[in-house]
Design a protein around this nucleic acid. Structure first.
Length: 294
DNA sequence: AAGAACTCCTGTTGGC
DNA sequence: TGCCAACAGGAGTTCT
């Protein structure tokens, strides 16, 4: 569910609740999410102080004063809600996770030292949490192979072209490959391709000349990726069903989609007049305008 | 060894 | 209304 803009929005909402505070009681409602929770998970967190809350790709990283880092991935339906002491919790909205059966989808609850409560719910349980040594995070299999952070100077046309040389895979699949660009998912890959005017079916290698230098298309694509993500972060992410910010409010960027979920509708590019189509690529839905995306 | 297919899990939606 | 297939923001694992 959450791609980079949603995870970054969650990070910004979670930071004031976590950073500088210590973990009090940690409640585990089940022993596993996607993977088993770490050994002695609650005991290793309780009493630990959060020094910083960072994001890498779609991972949230809470740096602890114990030398460990709490790694959190939201999968498709993971959600954090922050409850501040003395503030009325927002009424569950249209997208409230069903928690009948005694809250079966609320799996982990952090009670912080100042009485703030942070609740993690995740109906599909594709999310997970890890505790890793902070000084060796980069060696962990989850992080070792990650590609460029798209909003950083690490993502340049030259970088993308070099990675694309000889790659026959679809441009869409290439963009979603976390080893190339870390943080793009299905929505923003579609939106960035539309903004760049590139077909999702084009081969990745067409971004590079034979020597590996970037084509004009590659320059456009890199600019489109950064602009799309930047606007989505500014809008607080996109809410389709599950995603909410940590205060329960929804994202806004779904109202700005040019193509995602808009099959059969008119392409919004001025003067285009094409009709948006849906197609399946690698088992995922791709939305694009066959007229202006070549 | 790149690339595609399959898998985990639950909930919602759309067609008949 | 009910039933069932298809689909949903991810990505690790297993095949070809």
């Amino acid at each position: 569910m959450p791609e980079l803009p949603e995870v970054e929005t969650v990070r910004r909402g979670l930071a004031p609740a976590l950073v500088g505070r210590r973990f009090g009681r940690v409640e585990l409602r089940r022993p596993d999410l996607r993977f088993p929770l770490p050994e002695r998970f609650a005991a290793r967190l309780e009493g630990a102080r959060v020094e910083a809350l960072e994001r890498r790709a779609k991972y949230l990283l809470a740096r602890l004063d114990t030398g460990e880092t709490l790694v959190m991935h939201l999968g498709m339906t993971g959600r954090f809600i922050v409850e501040r002491p003395g503030k009325d919790p927002r009424k569950p909205g249209r997208f409230a996770h069903r928690t009948g059966n005694g809250g079966v989808h609320e799996h982990v609850v952090f009670h912080m030292s100042d009485a703030t409560v942070v609740r993690y719910s995740d109906p599909r349980r594709f999310g997970y949490m890890l505790l890793l040594p902070s000084d060796r995070l980069g060696e962990d299999p989850h992080f070792r192979g990650l590609g460029a952070e798209p909003m950083s100077d690490g993502l340049t046309p030259a970088y993308l072209a070099r990675a694309a040389v000889g790659r026959r895979t679809d441009l869409k699949a290439f963009l979603m490959d976390q080893r190339i660009i870390a943080g793009l998912g299905n929505i923003y890959a579609c939106e960035a391709l539309h903004r760049a005017g590139l077909s999702p079916r084009r081969s990745a290698t067409s971004l590079a000349r034979r020597a590996g230098s970037p084509t004009a298309r590659c320059e456009r694509l890199v600019a489109a990726v950064k602009a799309t993500l930047g606007e989505a972060i500014a809008a607080g992410g996109s809410t389709l069903r599950d995603y909410q910010q940590t205060d329960g409010s929804l994202g806004d960027f779904q109202h700005s989609f040019a193509v995602y979920g808009r099959a059969g509708l008119r392409c919004p590019r001025p003067g285009c007049g094409g009709t948006i189509r849906r197609l399946a690529q690698g088992g995922r839905s791709t939305f694009f305008c066959p007229r202006c995306q070549r």
